[in-house]
Design a binder for these strands. Structure first.
Lengths: 201, 201
DNA sequence: AAACTAATTGTACGATCGTTCGTACAACTT
DNA sequence: AAGTTGTACGAACGATCGTACAATTAGTTT
């Protein structure tokens, strides 16, 4: 009746697959999804190259699976915790703080996974770019709707654009210059912009 | 008396070197500085692989030279034109507009060169990262000082942080989603933030 | 014209890339 | 117990990577 796997072989397979994708996302956040090589991944995990390859069938499929795995981690770490707050200012604040914490505590060693891979794939065609663009759109939409749930805000799309810009800037500065101050600056920027937007005329 | 090269051989060498670096920067803005391979570069330029290699002696040196060449293009296209305006609000506006035009008109086919390579190298050690970080610092400083030349602005560092965030966000969105609207949003964000900062109490 | 110098080329190298294939072994089914 | 399925492995493939070095071409100096 239940969907629980009873086959110990596929259970074991899914576990190694999870381990592979976890490590793959970590590497990709530092070296990019192209810098992520199957041989190196296998070496670090101490499994065979062909074993890793067999799980995905192609490098592109590995990259796509890595993006999906990273998205799941992102949702669990950033999106879900904000949902405990009711829609409104409180949820938005929780969302912004959650994102900055996600970046600052280095959930991925190279900072935000999607910042890294977005910049890597934004200018080339292909399924990987499409997947990344899709998640980016989802994130934009979610932030915009979270902002739009605050009745005083006149232009949620514009506000969402600016807020996301602050987050990514903090991540970029922090990683490149090893400067935790960037997060303070982003927090101040978010606070200021939200205050401005909610100060109805 | 003059420092003009009279040797036709080194003259020719410097010209091919310039061509190599121009193409290298174009490729790197799309594929990254690692995706930039000597063999491919040679193929596209229809010269020999060893000919390209001989100009730099190592891949890392080619990458460093490419970053320097891109920085020179950036300065000529963004920084210099703003210097015709006297320090103050006019220069800042010119600088912001110049940057957005530089990104929008695809001076580099992959959008802003430095956005691409920053995200690629921000998390790994090495001379290339150091060079990129150095230029990024210079750019931050220059924007901050341009803002600071406007007497009404209380916290130039904070304002510069936010303005640069808008620029990079516009570039990222535009390239990833093929959405020219992002530049309008960035222009609106810059206008609004500058207006807020110059509205003295 | 000969000697020299700088830019460019051709050939070759070891390493690593993604990928393919046949095999070994554990776990499940009958 | 015999047969089937799924995961993981080792070895090898052609291609490409960065790099090395000797030969060649073009331009300068004597």
């Amino acid at each position: 009746m239940d969907g629980v796997k009873v086959d110990g072989r596929v259970e074991r397979g899914e576990q190694t697959r999870r381990q592979i994708l976890r490590r793959a996302a970590e590497i990709a956040s530092v070296e990019g999804l192209e810098g992520l090589s199957i041989g190196r991944l296998a070496g670090e995990l101490e499994v065979s190259k062909s074993g890793v390859f067999a799980h995905f069938g192609s490098k592109e499929e590995l990259q796509l699976a890595t993006v999906r795995a990273a998205a799941a981690i992102f949702v669990r770490q950033v999106v879900d915790p904000a949902l405990v707050e009711p829609p409104g200012l409180g949820r938005l604040t929780r969302l912004m703080d959650g994102w900055l914490a996600y970046s600052q505590n280095r959930t991925f060693p190279g900072g935000c996974f999607f910042y890294a891979v977005q910049a890597e794939f934004d200018a080339r065609p292909g399924r990987v770019r499409d997947a990344i663009a899709g998640y980016a759109r989802e994130w934009n939409t979610y932030v915009r709707e979270t902002v739009a749930a605050i009745p005083e805000v006149a232009d949620p799309e514009q506000v969402a654009f600016e807020l996301i810009a602050f987050l990514e800037m903090a991540n970029a500065q922090s990683v490149l210059h090893d400067d935790p101050h960037a997060y303070d600056r982003a927090r101040a920027a978010v606070r200021n912009r939200v205050a401005q937007a909610t100060a109805a005329a």
